[in-house]
Amino acid sequence: MASDTAEPVRRTPAGRTPRKSGASPGVVRARKVWLWLTRRAAFRNLGPFVPVIALWWLVAEMGVFDEAFFVGPPRVVEEFGDLMEKGILPGYLTDSLTRLAYGVGFGLAIGLPMGFVVAMFAKVRRFFWPILLFFQAVADIAWLPIVIVWFGFSLTAVTFVIVYTIVFPLMLSVVAGVEQVPRELLRAARSLGAGRTRVFFEVILPGALPSVAGGVRTGLGYGWRALVAAEIIVGTSGVGFMMFDARRVGDISQVFLGMAVLGILWYALDAMVLAPFERATVERWGMVRSLEADG
């Protein structure tokens, strides 16, 4: 279902295989299995990780590095089971995700409207643009010292940093999105009887969506990273804290586990929320060329 666009492209060689001379039945069957596999969403989403994990495993088994510095997949899975059983990992994950949800929620609620206000009103924009660029340049982590002084080691401090990280790229992408709406579309809407408010909701909002969706994705990615960084410094709990704390006591497997958890969570968020949203909107409308159709 996710491979609507890719199917016709990939089916063509399949139709040709039987006619090819010299291809043994075994090769043909292998090719058929491969084609069947590449059409499964699960395979296309998880397949690329198989060689990565295999390589990781191999390096660990060969003992290239000392086990105190490098652990293999079995140790990490074991550690995962252990921490799940003890309830530590679920607790930390809940903490991290709660912080992320607060940060992202406030970040979007502030960034999107502010972005559109700055984009729509030239005077507001002229005033805010230099300020926007200035504060975008002050790295999120650079705020941590003063934020800890203000809010202590609290949820507020972490939320502040995440919101800060998300808001600026989001605003810039909204401005870019509004700018990239073709002038002719605005004119067409006006000459079909749309007033300024209707033009905003009917043309500017959907027209800016490709760029805004990109901004939300980048913003979330930044927020995710800022969360881990903030937890390492502010940390009293959370996945970032777990990793840093494990390093302190020399438990490398927890550090590896933390990295895997971060990657998997982000990938799941992207595959289950962000990518389907983009497929249903901007790709459906033909506003960006689908990556899969190109391949």
Binding site: E184, L185, G286
Partner: peptide, 9 residues
């Protein structure tokens, strides 16, 4: 319009 200016969405 020459560019058609249809609403893609």
């Amino acid at each position: 319009f020459q560019s058609h200016a249809l609403f893609p969405w």
